[in-house]
Each structure stands twice: as structure tokens, then as C-alpha cells.
């Protein structure tokens, strides 16, 4: 359940970003979570609700934007879609694929009310 620690990090980043601003309420927090990242969106939502209570983001909705997976296949010499971390190239079936997208864990922005 490292999603709890990640949810706390999200709150920290939000609090840092709005600290010096006159903001009544944070309506939503938008995070990008790649489909190949080691994070369960459901667990992150659950944990965010738990940790946002006593923070500047209390009551905010967490919006998770999934980022599709992609990798560079060394054998095919091109970017291919990846649906599984460390998965095979969908075209040649080999595993010489370097992940280039889908690993994102990023706080994009907050919407304030």
C-alpha cells in the first residue's frame, strides 16, 4: 500500500503550490498515472480521501488521468504500444523494449474554487 505514501506526497505538492495564494478551496487535483506505473488508481483514490481530510486540499476530488504505455523496440527500431510493464513488443514478440511512456506519476494541476 505505498499508495498511502504517494497520496501524502500529492497533498504535500498541492500545499506547496498554493501556500502563498489566497485560495478558499481546492476543488480538484489532477494527477497523471501511467498505465504501466506501479500504482493502483483505486487504492490511490481511497488513500487520497483518507489523507486530504486535514489538509489544504480537504474535500478536493482526485482526478486520475491515465497515460497510455509505449516503448522503443530495439529490434523493430520504432515506438510500439505497451500494455504491460516489461511486456513484449506487440510486433516482433521480443522483449527488447525500453519503456518510453506509461510510467508517469505526476501532479498536473489543481482546480481552485
Amino acid at each position: 500500500m505505498h499508495e498511502m505514501a504517494l497520496a501524502e506526497s500529492v497533498i504535500d505538492l498541492v500545499e506547496d503550490a498554493i501556500r502563498d495564494k489566497d485560495i478558499a478551496q481546492v476543488k480538484s487535483v489532477v494527477v497523471e498515472v501511467g498505465i504501466l506505473s506501479h500504482v493502483s488508481p483505486e487504492a490511490l483514490l481511497f488513500c487520497f480521501d483518507a489523507v486530504c481530510r486535514d489538509s489544504a486540499a480537504a474535500g478536493a476530488r482526485l482526478e486520475i488521468v491515465r497515460v497510455a504505455g509505449a516503448g522503443w523496440c530495439l529490434d523493430c527500431g520504432k515506438t510500439v504500444p505497451l500494455s504491460e510493464r516489461f511486456g513484449a513488443c506487440p510486433e516482433c514478440g521480443r522483449h527488447h523494449v525500453q519503456m518510453t511512456a506509461g510510467d508517469e506519476l505526476r501532479v498536473r494541476e489543481v482546480e481552485i474554487g
Partner: peptide, 19 residues
């Protein structure tokens, strides 16, 4: 990248930092 079309940009605080 917001969920309400036409929402004014001032209501959005960009963070763009890795979790």
C-alpha cells in the same frame, strides 16, 4: 487538460511535479 470545458485558466494552478 481540465474537465470543464471553457473553465478559466486562472482557476487552475499548474503544478507539473512528479509525485
Amino acid at each position: 487538460g481540465v474537465h470543464v470545458p471553457g473553465l478559466s485558466q486562472e482557476r487552475i494552478v499548474r503544478i507539473e511535479r512528479d509525485i
